[in-house]
Design a protein around this nucleic acid. Sequence first.
DNA 1: GCCAACGTTGGC
DNA 2: GCCAACGTTGGC
Length: 152
Amino acid sequence: MNYWLMKSEPDEASILDLQRAGTLPWTGVRNYQARNFMRDDMQLGDGVLFYHSSCPEPGIAGLAEVCSAAYPDATQFDPESPYFDPKSKPEVPRWLHVDVRWRETTRLLSLKAMREAPELAGMQVLQRGSRLSITPVTPAEWQAVLKRLHAA
DNA sequence: GCCAACGTTGGC
DNA sequence: GCCAACGTTGGC
């Protein structure tokens, strides 16, 4: 069982969109490291911190879980899609993704609050220059985030 | 809109 | 295989 933080721009897919949909395919990842996490390290039931990025109030907005194995991302073959990759061949799909299931819409644990939390200082997403859209989270960090999300 | 940081591309 | 140029991310 592993834990992850996954970034999403709420304009594209917010925690409320996930809540409405139940599950969503995590399409559009075009970074090899993030793809490899999904392909090699994610397991069914892994915990996901759903993070809103590139928005007025960045931060963790809810909880989700991995609910599929990795499979080819259809958007890479769609010329109409912003995620179209002309260099990817259907015989050898370059980009994969998992599906994610909604668990809980929480209050926002803002980026600012995350930075102020000593237990979260080591989180990969908070490191200088970190841009990866999917990063591993340690069990201790997961617990610390849950504690703060559920605190009054 | 700015810009720091990082990833990717492609010429050599 | 190096590395300069370019593109992207994402907070501010």
